[in-house]
Design a binder for these strands. Structure first.
Length: 600
RNA sequence: GGCCCCAUCGUCUAGCCUGGUCUAGGACGCCAGGUUCUCAUCCUGGAAACCGGGGUUCGAAUCCCCGUGGGGUCACCA
């Protein structure tokens, strides 16, 4: 599992590791003082967001780089929004991306088992760890570092509003003259009576320093912190509490997460300083690395609600669309969805509606990219470049930016993580994917296409039958994503007698010149009919021979045949096109073209 | 608004830490050519950036300060 030492890349001293300087001035890496453990800890409220995928990718690559452990933990402490279904979905999304975890929920993916608990640090669902949190909470309570609070939500809301009116930020602070013993008694009384209360953390009266491997040292002064909630009224821990305990108990050494968490970090650090294990040993502060955020191309925040937004807009735009939405979603569901911008429709309804209304859904979850037909390798490659850069050159002097996850694991380091936010550039991702598809061997591409079709377009292989292989050949260089696969071969998916002959093409290609395309076509028909093999290569040869014998340019034959077989002048190579339409189909289409277009 | 973070082509970035080799390099996109039976692929070329102002220095994209701009965050969500 561990890599040879000479393959470790450089790490900075701030990462809890030793950096040695040798005589020649070369820096080489040493193993950190304890095994590297990273974790990805999503809340199961939906599919894996693309920003989360990037975070997971980095955490995974970092652990792999050092031969450490990558933990997957499900943060389901919000009972209202979490679902087991979403958790499963996230596991599958990660597995599809090739991001596998060492410690975490078990998942069977393509015949291999991912996850497990080799270090005995589970369970990995926070909802199953409530007793653990409670034990630490009680120690904090006993030490006076945590205390019960009895304000209702409405009261807090009012206090916040009042502060806002004074142009201040409301911060919960332990009241003057607070009596801990009395407060604990009240807590016990409420406990017995089944009345709600929360437990808050007493923040220290000192500034908190956060050491971040990406952003440097950051100081948060005490007047800007507040006594946040540790245990909610429903008995569940808040994120802050659970994350600190679990990270410590699971031996997490490096926390890589989005920059939106930066302002939470002083709370976590303060908690680490206040918490101890049963034996009195202190919690440790992991190395933090806050990752720059990813935005939409237009600079707006990438949100899982974007998909709903796009469809909602289309629905509201026309009464016709509203009617169709009504049929799909039902009146009540539609009304609440339209009225509440924060509401999300089910994936299936959303997809159906988008298809029906011809709305392009923005891709924001990893599942969306899978559906669109991106290769996980290309996605990971592009994602890795959002906030990280290998800083290396290719032999031709261009920047090295196309690489696989193996390269990422070998070279990933915190010191090359950028500080500034980036925008998600679909065009560049598309280019990466097109290159990745193009680099596949024809057989590998065919397999990828089949796999994708099985999930998202089972009708295509059915329609194509034994022409699938030829279709795949024609498709490969012509699509950027697998979901475009029907476009280059659309002519092969329609009935022979439903080809629509484009007027302009007919005029230009069939009627103009000498000889006319029509004449060439007529002459070519019997040659085609008499071919022994109908493989693209054989057809190609026959076509060349035909043209050479008559001193015709290839175009003089190819374009008329294209119009006859596809209705237009654009299609894959002539041999491929003819092969895809098939012998009977080709002859029928040529005959029909001769008949229909001669009259024009 | 308070706090925190950030700032190189339209976008992602290299260079910045360890000032000079930067008339700032690459990728995507864009534009113009070329190869090819059309399309796509492929090849060649081009336009395109150091946010502003001070300072330090012989010298600043690189170091410091201020301004401006952008972003994050201010929950019994995570």
């Amino acid at each position: 599992m561990r890599r040879p030492a000479d393959r470790w890349g450089a790490i900075s001293g701030g990462e809890g590791s030793g950096t040695a300087q040798c005589q020649a001035g070369l820096t080489f890496r040493t193993m950190p003082d304890r095994p590297v453990v990273t974790r990805f800890a999503p809340s199961p409220t939906g599919h894996l967001h693309i920003g989360g995928a990037r975070t997971a990718l980095f955490c995974w690559a970092y652990a792999r780089h050092f031969g450490g452990h990558f933990v997957l933990r499900i943060e389901d402490t919000d009972q209202k929004r979490s679902s087991e279904e979403a958790a499963k979905g996230i596991l599958e999304d990660l597995a599809w991306l090739g991001i596998t975890w060492d410690d975490g929920p078990r998942l069977e993916h393509e015949g291999t088992l991912i996850g497990g608990d080799p270090r005995g640090v589970g369970p990995f669902y926070q909802a199953q760890r409530l007793e653990i949190y409670q034990a630490y909470l009680e120690r904090l309570l006993a030490a006076g570092r945590a205390y019960p609070a009895f304000e209702t939500g409405e009261e807090l809301e009012r206090l916040r509003a009042e502060a806002q009116a004074r142009k201040e930020t409301y911060r919960y602070r332990q009241a003057e003259g607070y009596d801990h013993a009395q407060s604990l008694a009240e807590m016990r009384r409420r406990e017995a009576a089944g009345e709600p209360y929360v437990v808050r953390f007493r923040m220290p009266d000192t500034a908190i320093h956060v050491i971040d491997s990406v952003l440097g040292d950051i100081r948060f002064d005490e007047e800007h912190t507040d006594d946040f909630v540790l245990r909610k009224a429903d008995g569940f821990p808040t994120y802050h509490f659970a994350v600190v305990i679990d990270d410590e108990l699971m031996g997490v050494t490096h926390v890589l997460r989005g920059q939106e968490h930066l302002n939470n970090t002083p709370r976590h650090v303060a908690l680490q300083q206040a918490l101890t294990h049963e034996d009195g040993s202190p919690f440790r502060t992991p190395v933090y690395a806050h990752l720059p955020l990813i935005f939409n191309a237009d600079g707006s925040k990438m949100s899982k609600r974007d998909k709903d937004k796009a469809v909602r807009k289309a629905v509201q735009a026309s009464p016709d669309a509203t009617a169709r939405a009504l049929a799909l979603a039902g009146k009540d569901a539609l009304d609440t969805w339209l009225a509440d911008k924060t509401r999300q429709l089910g994936t299936d309804s959303l997809l159906a509606l988008a298809g029906d209304l011809r709305v392009e859904l923005p891709e924001i979850d990893s599942e969306d990219f899978r559906r669109s037909g991106y290769l996980p390798g290309a996605l990971c490659n592009y994602l890795a470049l959002l906030g990280w850069n290998p800083g290396a050159k290719n032999d031709d002097g261009t920047d090295l930016e196309r690489f696989d996850t193996g390269f990422l694991c070998d070279h990933f380091s915190l010191e090359r993580i950028g500080k500034s936010n980036s925008r998600f550039d679909r065009d560049k991702l598309l280019a990466f994917n097109q290159a990745a598809l193009g680099a596949l061997t024809p057989d590998a591409f065919e397999r990828e296409l089949r796999t994708w079709c099985r999930r998202y377009d089972p009708g295509l292989p059915e329609t194509l039958g034994d022409r699938f292989k030829a279709a795949a050949r024609a498709i490969q260089p012509r699509v950027k994503v697998l979901s475009q696969c029907r476009e280059p071969i659309a002519f092969a998916l329609i009935a022979d007698d439903s080809v629509v002959f484009d007027e302009k093409s007919v005029a230009k290609v069939l009627h103009k010149g000498e000889p006319t395309g029509l004449a060439v076509l007529k002459e070519f028909r019997p040659i085609l009919g008499g071919l022994e093999s109908f493989e693209p290569e054989a057809i190609e040869l026959a076509v060349k021979a035909f043209c050479e014998a008559r001193s015709l340019g290839m175009g003089k034959l190819a374009q008329p045949v294209r119009v006859a077989l596809t209705g237009g002048t654009v299609s894959p190579g002539l041999g491929e096109t003819i092969a895809l339409v098939g012998r009977a189909g080709s002859l029928a289409r040529i005959d029909r073209c001769l008949l229909v277009c001669a009259a024009r």
